[in-house]
């Protein structure tokens, strides 16, 4: 608290340089794409994908069986 009181008692003057030139040049740089948070899968989508995968595996099994029986 005492510090705050001390600070308010005096002001710091703004110093502006009187000599020399101030340059401000904007340089372009190549920009990167942002990091990508991945959307989570909803429960329904996960169930659908699971069903699809199971169906695919069953189909594959059946095809393999057909091939085996076809050879014999």
């Amino acid at each position: 608290m005492s510090e705050a009181k001390d600070k308010s008692s005096f002001n710091i003057d703004v110093v502006l340089p009187q000599q020399g030139l101030l340059y401000s040049e904007h340089t372009f740089d190549y920009i990167l794409c942002k990091p990508k948070l991945m959307p989570l899968k909803s429960v329904t989508l996960e169930k659908l994908e699971k069903m699809q995968k199971e169906a695919y595996e069953k189909l594959k099994e059946m095809q393999e069986q057909d091939q085996v029986t076809g050879v014999h």
């Binding site: 989570l40 899968k41 989508l45």
Partner: peptide, 14 residues
């Protein structure tokens, strides 16, 4: 960022 279809990404794929 956007998904491949050009929509801004969302929290959940739906």
């Amino acid at each position: 960022p956007r998904t491949q279809t050009g929509r801004p990404v969302t929290g959940v794929l739906r």
